[in-house]
Design a protein around this nucleic acid. Sequence first.
DNA 1: ATCGGGACCTGCTTGC
DNA 2: TGCAAGCAGGTCCCGA
Length: 269
Amino acid sequence: MPELPEVETTCRGIAPHLEGATITAIEIRNPRLRWPIPESVQQACGHPVMAVRRRAKYIIIEVAGGALLLHLGMSGSVRVLLEAATPRKHDHFDLVTPHAIVRYCDPRRFGSFTWCDTPIESHPLLAALGPEPLSDAFSGDHLYKRARGRRAAVKNFIMDGRIVVGVGNIYASEALFMAGIHPARPAGRISRARYAGLAGAIRDVLARAIRQGGTTLRDFSGAGGTPGYFAQELLAYEREGQPCLQCGATIHRRVIGQRSSYYCPACQR
DNA sequence: ATCGGGACCTGCTTGC
DNA sequence: TGCAAGCAGGTCCCGA
């Protein structure tokens, strides 16, 4: 479910409830996620939360002495409860504070939850990550330089977190459509100018999706339970067989790198 | 160094 | 109606 806008929406949803509050307990109901939840997460208890922030698709909850590192995987979601509620089937754990419970649910168990007591940016899961797409470090020139000599499809290239973080399957299709670049084109065979357009498209689509509260396709909702509204702005994703909104040709679907890609064969070259 | 593919999971939709 | 196949928003790890 979650790409960068969904994670950002989740982060903003839980931050007001956690920042300044003390986690009094972490109640683990089902520790089986991508990796088993370690006992060490309990070290976050008893200290006020200093900050809740996002790096790539990870949510970082900082306390004195370390940080909780949370990933939503493919199907993770978080709800904020202001009163007790019966846990549902795939609710894995709760972060309990005096005024709220942050409850994590993940049916497919591709998400993760760990504790880090060393500098967070050098954590093995974060150390090799590329720039944030909405930061100044990300640009067309950055993409162009990193693409030299690469023969892999540009769609796989922009979804590689070591190149740029936060571009998942939906927004990769969308950004390539906006930039008029065919998703299967080799990354090394795209001009500097076209990469400038692609970087702009990535920035634009992610920023707009964040403003809409993410994309709700199936069951995503923000921490307060409200759905995202970006789905109605999708130009290519899941539009196979429908007319291109720019030229009227039929949108195609093709599996690239084991993922469905949607594109207009006339507009995208 | 780069790449493609397999792996990890459950649940929903589709088609015979 | 029932059952199997196909599909889903991520990313780590392996061998070539």
